[in-house]
Design a protein around this nucleic acid. Structure first.
Lengths: 332, 332
DNA sequence: TTGTATGCGTTATCAC
DNA sequence: GTGATAACGCATACAA
């Protein structure tokens, strides 16, 4: 059943030359005459020869595969980033293979090992923790900072993120500007740097207006599912009916919150104002005020960085923060 | 820099045995004494030996990799399906590698070749066309039917889809029930079987009520981006203001349509009624009436089928249609 | 410019 | 039970 895979050896025989020469032609290495090259190429075309990447990779210890590790490919933000990374890599002759880690560290580690064993040329990682097991492989971190880094200049790993602190700040400013005084933060997984930074930004905006956010006004959810946002706001408004402004670490959570408020009879933005993060594709339809991330740009930069790292290019400013933007719509 | 990868040969030396035996232990093949097994296992543990999948695959001509080809990983529906497939495969000790084809047939074909060259054990394909180049590989088609198949029993390829015809029918019924008489269909890519079937179902519901849908009431978009839905409905309502019901081939298109109608001052569902397809996560927030697909179930079945096909299990009813469900919300 | 021979890390065949 | 050894398909050091 399995079609016989034609090999260099056969190409060599048919072209009346050696495997070495065929290989040289294939890789444009070393020297060979125009004539033999043409002969070889002809045979390759005729036989429909396909180079076996396994054998090559076994020999050269590199592939042109880049592994992409994503926490949740079902969430639009990650899907869109992944798509853009893939496109960028593709344009640079790399093959992107993506794996969903499901926010599961062990699974992520497992996939990292697998990629490594497959001689992947690099790994683009969206995840909470630093990958320590393989310093020899180029790694680009995206969206989530693997370390608790305060100082951008001193770190020596590559990270592409949006300016989360600024995002949180803009959100806080907007809520305060619109008159909110009792502000809450609903967040999926506070251990993720991204979400902590947003809180940090929020805090800084609040303190500027002599406001503060106490721990009871910060609710952590189990995922960024809409239902979780619903439940969180329900809990929040039940225990703290004085809340008049809520910042969410993602639009999806805000969607859930909005649904609860509508359902429970709160007027938005009258009684409670909402602001999300990401600028999800449906946020414009729903009319959610949010902080827009430059999703495509993040993906593009991540892909480009990876290509440059593999090429050995010296990159001084390794960590890169892309600007965010406040998009005011109907919920503030 | 590159850490030395310890190999079977070294394991054999350290354990005082041969590579053959090590391999046997590794694969639980052939026979070996308990003692040697323990010795080998001990050395493996101590050295942190990692089997090289490239070498193995080169030798065995199979991997435990399944390639997943997706048209647009940025669209939630595909992302969610992909995620579920991945989980299912993972539970069965397969590694899922996903590639985004961007609705591009050539790119899809290219990835198929790559997967094949990497000795992938199977391919799960969400795409318009049949993969003809490699009949020797197990293929599971998902969501989109690669052929114009009318008769489910006669086809010999595996397809997991929802009941698109029934979905279209339910949508048509609902619109008619709510009083619509001039019904339109807005669709991304009519060449996709999935979308044609939905139209077919719609037509059959219409004809039952002695209604019809003329070509001018069918608008094709360039993607399922929200903006495309917006533009399509704008065009539709401008040229045919009598339209009082619109069925969309995906929720995302309906979102755009809804936004246009709101913006242009049409009352929904008063003047125009809308119904989507998929039950996107935000549809409940937006209040869109839609046809729900069993997304997780589709992913699960696809993964399971693949596993069974690889195992060589005989499957008589290869094509499988999962039931859909009408979810009535505020737009009808 | 070209060819020979070896090795990459496995698995499988065959003898012992 | 176990051990040499060939082979998978390719790239490269070394000769020629």
């Amino acid at each position: 059943m399995k079609k016989h895979q034609v090999s260099v050896k056969e190409i060599a025989q048919l072209a009346g030359t050696s495997t070495a020469t065929v290989s040289r032609v294939l890789n444009q290495n070393g020297r060979f005459s125009k004539e033999t090259e043409e002969r070889v190429r002809k045979v390759i075309a005729e036989t429909g020869y396909q180079l076996n990447p396994l054998a090559r990779s076994l020999r050269t210890t590199h592939s042109n595969i880049i592994g992409i590790l994503v926490p949740d490919i079902g969430y639009e933000f990650y899907g869109t980033i992944t798509k853009k990374i893939q496109e960028t890599l593709m344009e640079n002759d790399y093959m992107a293979l993506v794996s969903n880690t499901g926010e599961n560290l062990e699974q992520a580690a497992q996939y990292v090992q697998i990629f490594k064993n497959y001689n992947a040329d690099g790994i683009i990682y969206i995840g909470n923790n630093e990958i320590t097991e393989l310093p020899e492989l180029p790694i680009v971190y995206v969206d989530r900072d693997p370390r608790d880094a305060q100082d951008m200049t001193e770190e020596n790993y590559t990270l592409i993120e949006c300016d989360n602190i600024q995002g949180g700040y803009l959100a806080g400013e907007e809520l305060i500007r619109k008159g909110c005084r009792h502000i809450a933060y609903i967040v999926f997984d506070q251990t993720v740097s991204t979400h902590r930074k947003r809180l940090q930004g929020l805090r800084s905006a609040l303190s500027k207006a002599d406001l503060d956010i106490s721990d009871q006004y910060i609710i952590t959810t189990g995922s960024f599912l809409i239902e979780e946002g619903f439940a969180a706001v329900k809990q929040l408004m039940t225990s703290h009916p004085d809340v008049d402004g809520i910042f969410f670490s993602s639009d999806s959570l805000a969607f859930g919150g909005l649904r609860y408020l509508n359902q429970a009879g709160f007027s938005v933005p009258g009684q409670v104002k909402l602001i999300g993060f990401d600028d999800h594709s449906t946020s414009s339809v729903i009319g959610l005020t949010t902080i827009r991330q430059p999703v495509s740009e993040i993906g593009l930069q991540a892909g480009l960085r990876m290509v440059r790292m593999i090429a050995g290019e010296e990159i001084h400013r390794q960590r890169r923060r892309l600007p965010v933007e406040l998009v005011v719509r109907g919920t503030t």
